[in-house]
């Protein structure tokens, strides 16, 4: 048993740039979403598959710097764009980003299925808007459903990162 995959199919060859690394995708079927290809062809299992219709945010990735649901992107159309998954957020494989660390410290993780998508979304939020209000935080992550936490500890984690980044920059 391992964590990755392939499997043959109809047509298509293209190249995807994920977390700064190039990957050739061959023998794919045109209908494969970016989420499917990331998970089942390239082994990036951080983005999760929970609804396949853009309603839950579990598969959130950055596509040329924009937060999107990988399940709604046709993989072949993302060729030539920069894709960042949760695996590409920390500076190195040993480290955690400040958002990742805060999620652990503040109890924002329970089952953890929504966590990777939320972490990408919070990185995106605080990158765009370093000092969001509580309502802005809620709106920014309203597309990331969590069923375990009731969001309370997630808000705490975001607040902790907001505060520490502002302190670090002042």
């Amino acid at each position: 048993m391992s964590l990755a995959t392939p499997s043959p199919s109809e047509q298509g060859a293209y190249r995807l740039e994920v977390n700064g690394r190039g990957h050739d995708v061959v023998d794919s079927w045109a209908g494969e979403s970016l989420l499917y290809v990331l998970r089942n062809r390239l082994g990036y299992l951080g983005p999760k598959n929970a609804c396949e219709q853009g309603e839950c945010g579990s598969c959130s990735v950055l596509l040329d710097g924009r937060l999107v649901c990988a399940c709604l992107v046709l993989a072949a159309s993302a060729a030539g764009q920069e894709i960042v998954t949760v695996e590409g957020l920390a500076d190195s494989e040993e480290e955690l980003s400040d958002v990742q660390q805060a999620f652990i410290d503040h109890g924002a993780v329970q089952c953890g299925f929504c966590t990777p998508g939320l972490i990408v979304a919070v990185h995106d939020l605080l990158g765009r808007l370093p000092d969001p209000t509580e309502l802005e935080v809620r709106e920014a992550i309203s597309g990331n459903l969590c069923r375990c936490t009731g969001y309370g500890r997630i808000f705490e984690a975001v607040e902790a990162v907001r505060r520490s980044r502002l302190e670090a920059s002042s």
Binding site: M1, S2, L3, A4, T5, R39, N40, Y44, L45, G46, P47, K48, N49, T85, V86, E87, A90, L96, Q100, Q101, F103, I104, D105, G107, V109, G112, F113, T115, P116, I119
Partner: peptide, 27 residues
């Protein structure tokens, strides 16, 4: 007390293996 979850690190990295993340050769 409130120690850290032991599975917190893998979960925030996206490395925690959920049942949908498993694969076996030839599956």
């Amino acid at each position: 007390t409130s120690p850290l979850r032991p599975d917190g690190g893998p979960k925030v990295r996206g490395e925690f293996a959920f049942s949908s993340d498993l694969w076996a050769e030839g599956a």
